[in-house]
């Protein structure tokens, strides 16, 4: 685990170096003052860092807004998708009759519903967050549902048979077999969903009905900065990336702890 953290750290440093490299390359390639606006398209990480320090309070509030929407949505999606997905994947009737239903909703692009949801909830300032969270859940939930359902269905039958024959009550099969057996798949699907969730939170934050929101989120910050404030755009992107990375690392820790049975035994050479 410590090794993994070190890996993350090194990757971040590498990314920053590449970024600095591109930025320096532009400075070198476009020395004509006429091209200054091109050079400005990729500011150096240090410039962005300076911007972040100067605007930490404003950025921090937006980061809080984005984190709140993203994390709430993901927890809600999990709370809905885990029980439902496990049930649909395991229970015979549900697998037979609800699977086609789930599969036919899955490919519908949920993003296109953002305007509809936004307008539906356009009652007051308080409901704006509800609209956004509803939208993010809509995007993330089906992704989770489909993979959790598949994972539950693919649990080897022998495990279920063993537990039932040993005297585990049928409804306890979920906690003893189906859930723990699906956990690795739930985690890998959670990682994919996190990416989707970040995308959805960005889309949702580009729209606000009521004035200029303080906690509008990094999406809002980028949206209103636009081409006029490129350093601000980068600062917000860095903040989103940092949020995403933190959540990834958190998920990885959680997985190592909850699925420790997967990480014991021989570390085979590959």
């Amino acid at each position: 685990m410590i090794k993994n953290l070190l890996g993350y750290l090194l990757s971040v440093i590498l990314l920053l170096l590449i970024w600095q490299g591109v930025s320096s390359l532009l400075v070198y390639a476009y020395q004509d003052p006429q091209d200054a606006r091109i050079v400005r398209l990729v500011p150096s990480p240090l410039t962005v860092l300076a911007f972040m320090i100067n605007h930490w309070e404003e950025l921090g509030k937006h980061l809080l807004g984005t984190s709140f929407r993203l994390i709430t949505s993901i927890i809600l999606s999990l709370a809905l998708a885990i029980p439902l997905g496990l049930y649909i994947g395991h229970a015979n009737w549900a697998r037979r009759y609800l699977t086609p239903f789930v599969y036919s909703i899955y490919p519908i692009p949920k993003v296109v519903f953002w305007p509809v949801i936004f307008l539906l909830f356009q009652i007051g300032q308080a409901t704006e967050d509800i609209a956004k969270i509803t939208f993010i859940v809509l995007v993330v939930f089906f992704q989770l549902l489909v993979s959790i359902r598949d994972a539950a269905e693919n649990i080897p039958k022998e495990y279920v048979v063993t537990a039932l024959a040993a005297g585990v009550k049928p409804f306890r099969i979920y906690t003893n077999v189906i859930l723990p057996g699906s956990l690795p798949a739930i985690f890998s699907s959670l990682r994919v969903s996190l990416g989707l969730g970040i995308f959805a939170v960005y889309v949702s934050e580009t729209t606000f009905a009521f004035g200029t929101p303080e906690y509008g989120g990094l999406g809002w910050f980028i949206f209103k900065s636009g081409i006029l404030n490129i350093n601000g755009d980068y600062a917000a992107i860095v903040a989103i990336a940092a949020l995403g990375l933190t959540l990834y690392v958190l998920i990885e820790f959680l997985e190592h702890w909850l699925c420790r049975w997967k990480y014991v035994g021989h570390e085979i050479q590959r």
Binding site: V161, T162, A166, W261
Partner: peptide, 14 residues
């Protein structure tokens, strides 16, 4: 009554 299967007789996560 106990049932013993060929494989997977044990749950890997327990």
């Amino acid at each position: 009554v106990a049932l013993m299967l060929q494989e997977s007789g044990l749950l890997p996560w327990k």
